[in-house]
Amino acid sequence: MSHHKLEAKDLHYSYPDDHEAVKGMSFCIHHGESVGIIGANGAGKSTLLMLLMGVLFPSQGEVCVGDVHVTKKTLPMIRQRLGMVFQDPDDQLFMSTVYDDVAFGPRNYKLDEKEVETRVLHALELVGILHLKDRAPFKLSGGEKRAAAIASVLSMHPDVLVMDEPTAALDPKSRRRVMKLLTSFKHTKIITSHDLDMIYEMCDRTIVIKNGEIAADGVTSEILVNAQLMDECGLEVPLAMQNCPVCGSAKE
């Protein structure tokens, strides 16, 4: 389905203080792919996602969703198809109950209240926090907040799920749950992270970013074992792929 592809063509972006955060990135993501975007802090991952979502506009180059260019005019349509989960769930949850928060998106698209309810309950059930629907978002734990933030995007039925560091600041159990949750979605997924073990498990393809440029783009299992590449980009080969730290025996 070509209308689900997401393409970046020679993106450039400078922040108002003239700091060039994205310097000529190009890639194409096809329907159903799950792509990890990795890079050190400040490499430009979040900026790239903002460009994809049309929160920022590139100073040069363009983003296409399907055959549509992302411009101010096409934004409403684009945003219905791309759902983004922010790095900090507190930025995303601002209504007074979890239910209202998850309903915020669908209500903005003027669905009738019955349909909104079905979607909200379904989304909450998918992420496993149906029992929290009447709680205030700011009173949830980190993992629950993340789940609520994901639900608030799922309720809009996006084709592409974009996530900025979904497992950052989660304890191991919550991290597992979020990962399981994400694996169960058949959406196209774009995930940024430093959690390379997660990327290794969840993404078939990985794009490595270094100082605003694409340093590598390819099959995850090949990129993540490239110790030299990882080191140059301020990253390190994930634990799951390293030799055994105790006996030194190599992974088969």
């Binding site: 922010f86 930025d91 601002f94 309903a103 903005n108």
Partner: peptide, 22 residues
């Protein structure tokens, strides 16, 4: 922070009308 919250709202189709449900 306010900027990010606003962006998050826009990404979910916010256009200025605050829908509170029926």
């Amino acid at each position: 922070r306010a900027q990010r919250i606003y962006e998050a709202m826009c990404l979910r189709g916010f256009t200025g009308e605050y829908e509170t449900g029926g």
